[in-house]
């Protein structure tokens, strides 16, 4: 079984994003970048499927500028077999990303595509579902367990009320939630080996798709800041404040 894993290069999750002074966007100059944490979980899941003998080949794909080679190499060091970079300087929305990915799916015919549920920059939570629609495949989103059996995959999903399990016909699309697995670190020998694994580059503009967005980003602002609060000395003082100052409890 071939598994395709789309990975995105994003701001490191430990870094607090700052808004540019001219309010046009977030300032990413000299900011530490990394693989989106949900994509790391997706790569890890694919590698585990390969270790179990379920997956035979893992292909990773990233859409963006040349700098995402860094994240593709990381994925190769973690156990992916080959990588595809779809080169574009455009700041694409999830729909355009899903369209490009659907082209890759058409070419590669993976039986399983594992994506992150959400990228931590745009916080869209859309791409996997859109890819499922465009390829007419079933979707198992926010997965905390993935079990491949015969020509189906059982996906346990983290939903608002608890957990839901669905059974999907393969080929299918899965998106990862935080508790699916704990990603490993790449070992030094594997990082060296990854340098020799194949990484193909395609140019997004040559893939015959309309990539312009009809969503205009008008402004990016700082969120309203909370007024600094006070420290209280005791439980008694806390209760007094909550009752008489904040008036949130009786």
């Amino acid at each position: 079984m071939k598994v395709l894993v789309p990975v995105k290069r994003v701001i490191d999750y430990n870094v607090k994003a700052r808004v540019k002074a001219d309010n046009t966007d977030v300032d990413l100059t000299n900011v530490k970048m990394a693989m989106n944490p949900f994509c790391e979980i997706a790569v890890e899941e694919a590698v585990r499927l390969k270790e179990k003998g379920t997956a035979t080949e893992i292909v990773v794909v990233s859409i963006g500028s040349k700098s995402c080679h860094e994240q593709l190499r990381t994925a190769l060091a973690l156990g992916a077999d080959r990588a595809i970079h779809i080169d574009t300087e455009l700041n694409l929305g999830s729909l355009q990303v899903a369209k490009l990915l659907s082209k890759v799916v058409e070419e590669e015919q993976p039986e399983l595509v594992i994506l992150g549920k959400q990228s931590i920059d745009a916080d869209n939570n859309q791409t996997g579902q859109m890819l499922a629609a465009l390829t007419n495949r079933p979707q198992g989103t926010f997965a905390s367990e993935v079990v491949v059996e015969d020509n189906k995959v059982a996906v346990t999903r983290e939903v608002d009320g608890g957990l839901q399990t669905v059974s999907l016909n393969l080929p299918a699309i899965v998106t990862t939630d935080l508790r699916l697995n704990e990603p490993r670190y790449a070992s030094l020998p594997n990082i060296m080996k990854a340098k020799r694994k194949p990484l193909d580059v395609k140019v997004a503009a040559d893939m015959g798709l309309e990539l312009s967005s009809k969503i205009n980003l008008l402004k990016v602002e700082e969120p309203s800041q909370r007024e600094g609060g006070v420290m209280v000395e005791s439980v008694d003082e806390l209760l007094e404040k909550l009752r008489n100052e904040a008036k949130v409890i009786a």
Binding site: S94, A98, Q126, L131, A133, T141, F142, I215
Partner: peptide
């Protein structure tokens, strides 16, 4: 934007060839 809405709405948006605005 519950887990139900987050699950099916992007599927609707892509089928309509529209970019969804989340959250």
């Amino acid at each position: 934007a519950t887990t139900t809405g987050k699950n099916f709405m992007p599927r609707v948006a892509a089928a309509l060839d529209v970019e969804q605005i989340s959250d």
